[in-house]
Amino acid sequence: MSPINEYAAVQLLDEAFRHWTGQGLPAPESLTGTERLHWLHEHAPYSLLAHGTEDDPRFFYANEQTLASFKYDRSQFLGMPSRFSASPLDRAMRQTLLEQVTVNGIAHGYSGWRVDRDGNAFMIYEGKVWTLIDQHGEHRGQAALFWPDSSRVGVID
Rank of each mutant, 00 (worst) to 15 (best):
M1K: 08
M1V: 09
S2E: 10
I4G: 03
I4V: 15
Y7M: 07
A8L: 14
V10K: 05
Q11I: 03
L12G: 08
L12N: 09
L12F: 07
L13Y: 06
D14V: 03
E15R: 14
F17A: 01
R18M: 12
H19T: 08
W20D: 09
W20R: 10
T21I: 05
G22K: 02
Q23R: 13
G24E: 03
P28A: 01
P28R: 00
E29F: 10
S30K: 14
S30M: 13
L31H: 02
G33Y: 04
T34R: 13
W39L: 00
L40K: 04
L40H: 00
H41P: 00
E42D: 14
H43S: 12
H43R: 12
A44N: 03
A44Q: 00
P45C: 02
Y46W: 08
S47M: 15
S47I: 06
S47R: 11
L48Q: 04
L49R: 11
H51W: 14
G52A: 09
T53G: 09
E54D: 15
E54H: 13
D56T: 14
D56G: 03
D56E: 13
F60P: 02
F60W: 12
A62K: 02
A62M: 07
N63A: 05
T66K: 05
L67S: 00
A68V: 14
A68K: 15
Y72I: 10
D73K: 15
D73M: 12
R74A: 11
R74G: 08
S75V: 15
Q76W: 05
F77C: 06
L78N: 04
L78T: 10
S82F: 12
S82H: 11
F84A: 08
A86Q: 11
S87P: 06
S87Y: 00
P88L: 06
D90N: 11
R91E: 04
R94G: 10
T96N: 10
L98R: 11
E99F: 09
Q100K: 14
Q100C: 13
Q100R: 15
Q100T: 12
G105E: 05
G109Q: 07
Y110G: 04
W113C: 04
W113T: 11
V115N: 03
V115C: 06
V115P: 00
G119K: 01
G119V: 09
Y125N: 07
G127T: 00
K128V: 15
K128F: 12
K128C: 13
V129S: 07
T131A: 14
D134Q: 08
Q135S: 15
G137R: 06
G137W: 04
G137P: 10
R140A: 01
R140P: 00
G141S: 01
A143Q: 03
A144V: 04
A144F: 08
A144Q: 05
A144S: 12
F146R: 02
F146D: 07
W147G: 09
W147Q: 02
D149I: 09
R152Q: 14
V153K: 07
G154P: 06
I156N: 02
